[in-house]
């Protein structure tokens, strides 16, 4: 597409001196992309996110996707394997396969949460969890709440050793966290695209939320059935927020915090209205959090309260 084929494709090197003005602009852009993916962040963030994700996995398979055990007991005619499952020649699910995967995950994921053998245990969890999800999505319905989590379990084992109290900056940590962020934000932004693709720009003026509440609404949600205008307004807000969501990848500090609080509020509302919580995506939003600052804040608070004991009167 571009005529500037002379620009070398070297992600790690500086922009070439001899490049023309356009070339150096391209080089600057490449540098910005490289910094975005690799500028080191405190490695302790990985320790936090790793613990949260791997402790979430048992909850996911025991509560959120527990139906896998039942569907695996159904006769094979009901199994409609998705492309990846066919490609990998995964066998038709049986109760034995589901039990084995569940036990592997129940043992390996909490161990991986400790950060020990992070690579081997991490990839074991990644493989078993992905298989579990392929069974979960293999009976006629595919959800998109698990996309970011499936990506997370594959990128976490590459982040290297990490400890809660070790803030040594790490480039591998940045890449892992960025992958999780992109996956979580894709879940939102591509949901807006899916609405446009499937329903055109008129999605927000329809009655989809009413449909969801009528079919599976909570008692709280059913109250909104008498307020269809409020439901339509909510659809516009959600659609707009999904369209704008990629901006979150470039926000900092309070703006970032505000955006995350908005999405947490969104998930809380859908849970209260129709019992859909998207926790597997929410858990990946933890990749945005500067966890080391919380520890510093807590430590500072503890030191101040200790200092306040011997010298109470300022």
């Amino acid at each position: 597409m571009s005529t500037q084929t002379s620009v070398p494709d070297s992600p790690a090197g500086p922009a070439p001196q001899q490049a023309a003005a356009g070339g150096s602009r391209l080089g600057a852009a490449a540098g910005a992309v490289r910094r975005w993916w690799f500028a080191p962040v405190p490695g302790s963030r990985i320790a936090w996110v790793r613990a949260l994700v791997y402790l979430f996995v048992p909850y996911d398979i025991l509560v959120i996707t527990q139906d896998v055990k039942g569907t695996a007991a159904l006769p094979g005619e009901f199994y409609q394997p998705t492309m990846l499952a066919r490609w990998l020649h995964l066998p038709t699910p049986t109760p034995g396969i589901a039990d084995t995967l569940q036990w592997v995950l129940l043992i390996a994921a909490p161990l991986a949460a400790t950060g020990r053998f992070h690579r081997s245990l991490g990839f074991l969890v990644a493989g078993a969890f992905t298989w579990w999800q392929l069974i979960n999505m293999g009976y006629g319905k595919v959800d998109h709440d698990h996309f970011a989590l499936v990506i997370a379990v594959w990128v976490l084992p590459t982040a290297g050793r990490a400890r809660f109290r070790d803030d040594t900056p790490s480039e591998a940590a940045t890449w892992t966290l960025r992958c999780m962020q992109v996956a979580a934000i894709s879940t939102y932004s591509l949901a807006a695209w899916a609405k446009i693709r499937e329903s055109g720009w008129g999605w927000a003026s329809g009655a989809t939320l009413l449909w969801a509440i009528e079919r599976r609404g909570t008692p709280f949600g059913k109250w909104f059935l008498d307020h269809p205008d409020l439901l339509r307004l909510s659809q516009w807000v959600v659609f707009f927020a999904e369209l704008c969501s990629p901006a979150i990848l470039f926000l900092r500090r309070w703006w970032l915090a505000a955006a995350l609080v908005f999405w947490l509020g969104f998930h809380l509302m859908t849970w209260l209205l129709v019992g859909i919580h998207f926790l597997p995506t929410v858990i990946c939003l933890t990749a945005f959090v500067p966890w080391e600052k919380f520890r510093a804040g807590l430590g500072g608070l503890a030191r101040r309260s200790q200092a306040a004991v011997p010298a109470p009167g300022r």
Binding site: M83, M137, H144, A191, W193, A194, E198, S199, W203, A212
Partner: peptide, 12 residues
């Protein structure tokens, strides 16, 4: 899946 459209509730 997992690289499927994010089409839950995308219908009108």
């Amino acid at each position: 899946f997992p690289f499927a459209p994010m089409s839950m509730f995308a219908f009108r």
